[in-house]
Amino acid sequence: MTYKLILNGKTLKGETTTEAVDAATAEKIFKQYANDNGVDGEWTYDDATKTFTVTE
């Protein structure tokens, strides 16, 4: 399945997608991606749209 991440960081904003077997796997990938890019904030997930959002 395709999952989407919306980044609302102070210095980085944008979107990315990943292919993952489930939401938990996608979350791990996205949290590593956000960490690698210096984004740390409040996480939400919308199962209907398979979208994670992180807001600093």
Results as ranks from 00 to 15, higher is better:
23 A>R: 15
24 A>K: 13
1 M>P: 14
31 K>V: 07
26 A>K: 00
13 K>F: 10
18 T>L: 09
22 D>Q: 03
47 D>V: 11
53 T>F: 09
34 A>R: 01
41 G>S: 02
2 T>W: 12
30 F>A: 01
11 T>G: 11
23 A>P: 10
48 A>G: 10
29 I>S: 05
20 A>H: 03
22 D>L: 04
18 T>D: 02
52 F>E: 00
17 T>S: 12
8 N>P: 04
32 Q>W: 06
7 L>H: 04
48 A>N: 12
4 K>E: 04
21 V>G: 10
50 K>Q: 12
22 D>T: 05
28 K>H: 10
3 Y>M: 02
28 K>Y: 10
33 Y>W: 12
21 V>I: 13
13 K>T: 13
1 M>L: 15
11 T>I: 10
7 L>F: 10
31 K>Q: 08
6 I>V: 11
5 L>Q: 00
46 D>A: 05
56 E>W: 13
41 G>A: 02
14 G>Y: 15
6 I>P: 00
50 K>M: 10
18 T>S: 06
2 T>F: 13
35 N>R: 15
4 K>I: 12
36 D>K: 10
11 T>L: 14
18 T>M: 08
33 Y>A: 03
13 K>M: 08
30 F>Q: 00
16 T>Q: 10
43 W>R: 00
13 K>E: 07
4 K>D: 03
1 M>V: 15
51 T>W: 02
52 F>T: 00
2 T>S: 09
52 F>Y: 06
45 Y>G: 00
46 D>G: 02
51 T>P: 00
10 K>R: 10
56 E>R: 04
29 I>T: 08
29 I>W: 12
39 V>R: 02
1 M>D: 15
54 V>P: 00
51 T>G: 02
55 T>R: 06
9 G>I: 09
18 T>N: 03
52 F>M: 02
27 E>A: 10
8 N>K: 09
20 A>F: 03
7 L>K: 02
20 A>V: 04
40 D>Q: 14
48 A>Y: 11
2 T>Y: 13
41 G>F: 03
12 L>G: 07
54 V>N: 02
15 E>Q: 11
38 G>W: 05
43 W>P: 01
29 I>N: 05
33 Y>H: 05
41 G>K: 02
31 K>T: 05
21 V>E: 12
34 A>F: 03
50 K>L: 12
2 T>G: 05
37 N>Q: 15
38 G>R: 06
40 D>E: 13
9 G>A: 09
28 K>S: 10
32 Q>D: 09
37 N>S: 08
5 L>H: 00
31 K>G: 04
14 G>M: 14
40 D>W: 13
44 T>M: 12
12 L>A: 08
40 D>F: 15
26 A>D: 00
21 V>L: 11
55 T>E: 07
11 T>E: 08
55 T>Y: 06
47 D>R: 07
24 A>P: 09
13 K>W: 10
40 D>M: 14
22 D>W: 03
43 W>N: 00
33 Y>P: 00
56 E>M: 08
1 M>Y: 15
3 Y>G: 01
6 I>T: 05
43 W>T: 01
3 Y>T: 01
10 K>Q: 12
26 A>M: 01
6 I>L: 07
11 T>F: 14
40 D>I: 13
35 N>S: 15
27 E>G: 07
46 D>L: 04
55 T>W: 09
50 K>N: 08
26 A>L: 00
41 G>N: 02
8 N>L: 10
2 T>N: 07
24 A>R: 11
43 W>F: 04
8 N>R: 11
49 T>W: 04
16 T>K: 10
49 T>Q: 06
47 D>L: 07
52 F>D: 00
46 D>V: 06
15 E>P: 04
14 G>A: 13
33 Y>K: 03
8 N>H: 11
55 T>K: 06
33 Y>M: 05
52 F>N: 00
3 Y>N: 01
5 L>R: 00
24 A>V: 10
31 K>P: 00
25 T>N: 08
42 E>Q: 10
5 L>G: 01
39 V>E: 03
11 T>S: 12
2 T>R: 10
15 E>N: 07
12 L>E: 06
1 M>E: 14
17 T>F: 14
50 K>W: 06
54 V>M: 05
15 E>M: 13
52 F>W: 07
18 T>I: 15
45 Y>N: 00
51 T>M: 05
44 T>S: 15
41 G>W: 06
40 D>L: 12
35 N>V: 14
7 L>V: 14
56 E>K: 04
49 T>L: 07
26 A>S: 02
45 Y>L: 02
31 K>W: 08
54 V>R: 01
21 V>D: 12
25 T>A: 14
13 K>N: 09
38 G>K: 08
49 T>A: 06
4 K>W: 09
22 D>F: 04
41 G>T: 02
54 V>I: 10
53 T>N: 05
39 V>M: 11
52 F>G: 00
8 N>M: 12
3 Y>F: 15
36 D>R: 10
33 Y>I: 09
48 A>K: 14
35 N>G: 11
25 T>W: 08
12 L>Q: 10
1 M>W: 13
19 E>F: 14
18 T>E: 04
30 F>V: 02
36 D>F: 09
20 A>K: 02
54 V>E: 00
42 E>W: 12
5 L>F: 05
50 K>H: 14
31 K>D: 03
30 F>G: 00
26 A>T: 01
45 Y>H: 02
53 T>S: 07
11 T>K: 12
48 A>M: 13
6 I>Q: 05
32 Q>R: 11
26 A>R: 00
10 K>V: 12
8 N>Q: 10
26 A>G: 02
33 Y>E: 03
19 E>G: 06
14 G>E: 07
14 G>N: 10
44 T>K: 10
11 T>W: 15
45 Y>I: 02
25 T>L: 07
